[in-house]
């Protein structure tokens, strides 16, 4: 609109100087009005866009190394029964309803094979929550590998653009049923503690090895892909602790599923190995 008005004004004021002042008044008034209108529109538009980008995604991302039990969790949540699974070759995306509420949630299960694991970045912008699923029964053996996976996830989480509200992050110590409960702690607590200590130790190792190291440049100019991973900064005295991680709160859950069984009916949900995880999902 603006160019037309000014053009008009120009047309007017060139031949007749009398109308000049009048035209000037009109144009300045309209200009003011138009600019006001524009400002309001802009502001509304900006807020709308901002709100859209700020609104949380709608997906739950299941990530983690191969063999952690991601697909089993997905099958339990979606089909209400735990089917047998093998290593996934492609991403599964299913939607679930969360029973008490009317909310529904999309679950994205990204394969953990190191060659395709990086696909989880694609789903990050739409993530409402990210769950890192770990096999609690083998964590002591695979600590370093799991930590590498986790490191990449943390790196992506912490380097998300500010326009996106950070997704909730949880570490799920899966296959708790493989651990024996001791007198002082249940199997779930045991699993959580074990996973937490192993991962903290391994991540701290990674952090110290990267600190002060000179990386090798990656071929073809800049780009942070793969070479220098950050994301392990802590507010505390430097040692890596999940509680002090800068990227936000990290929740821990101990879960388990039994292969081949249907999930018990709604009323006895408490017995389900995924109960704490479900509650967390509801709170999102």
């Amino acid at each position: 609109m603006d160019p037309i008005i000014t053009e008009e004004a120009v047309n007017h004021n060139v031949p007749t100087p009398e109308i000049l002042s009048q035209a000037k008044v009109i144009s300045s008034q309209t200009l003011l009005l138009v600019s006001l209108l524009l400002a309001v529109l802009l502001a509304v538009g900006f807020f709308a866009v901002r709100k859209r980008s700020q609104s949380k995604g709608s997906s739950l991302l299941l990530v983690g190394p191969s063999g952690g039990g991601k697909t089993a969790i997905l099958s339990t949540l979606v089909y209400k029964r735990t089917l047998r699974t093998h290593s996934s070759m492609q991403t599964n995306m299913a939607s679930i309803a969360l029973p008490p509420s009317t909310k529904s949630l999309r679950i994205v299960d990204v394969p953990g094979h190191p060659r395709i694991f990086d696909q989880f970045r694609e789903y990050m912008p739409d993530a409402k929550a990210v769950a890192f699923v770990v096999d609690a029964s083998t964590i002591s053996r695979n600590g370093a590998v799991v930590a590498e996976h986790l490191h990449r996830v943390l790196h992506v989480l912490i380097s998300l653009p500010p326009s996106q509200s950070p997704p909730a992050f949880a570490i799920v110590a899966h296959k708790c049923d493989a651990l024996k409960a001791s007198a002082s702690a249940t199997a779930e607590q045991l699993a959580i503690n074990r996973v937490r200590t192993v991962l903290e130790r391994e991540l701290d190792k990674r952090r110290t090895s990267h600190a002060g190291g000179v990386g090798v440049e990656s071929l073809g100019g800049e780009g942070d892909e793969g070479t220098d991973l950050g994301g392990l900064e802590c507010t505390g005295n430097g040692e890596f602790r999940f509680a002090e991680w800068e990227g936000g709160e990290v929740s821990f859950f101990g879960t388990s599923v039994a292969v081949g069984k249907a999930v018990p009916a709604e009323d006895e949900k408490g017995k389900d190995g995924l109960a704490p995880f479900r509650e967390w999902l509801l709170e999102l």
């Binding site: 299913a94 939607s95 679930i96 309803a97 529904s104 949630l105």
Partner: peptide, 22 residues
Amino acid sequence: ASLHVSSTGKVAAVNTATTWDF
């Protein structure tokens, strides 16, 4: 189809319609 959901909306219907008694 249930494993290729792109948006959350319509799929709830599909889910309830089918019983997944494998």
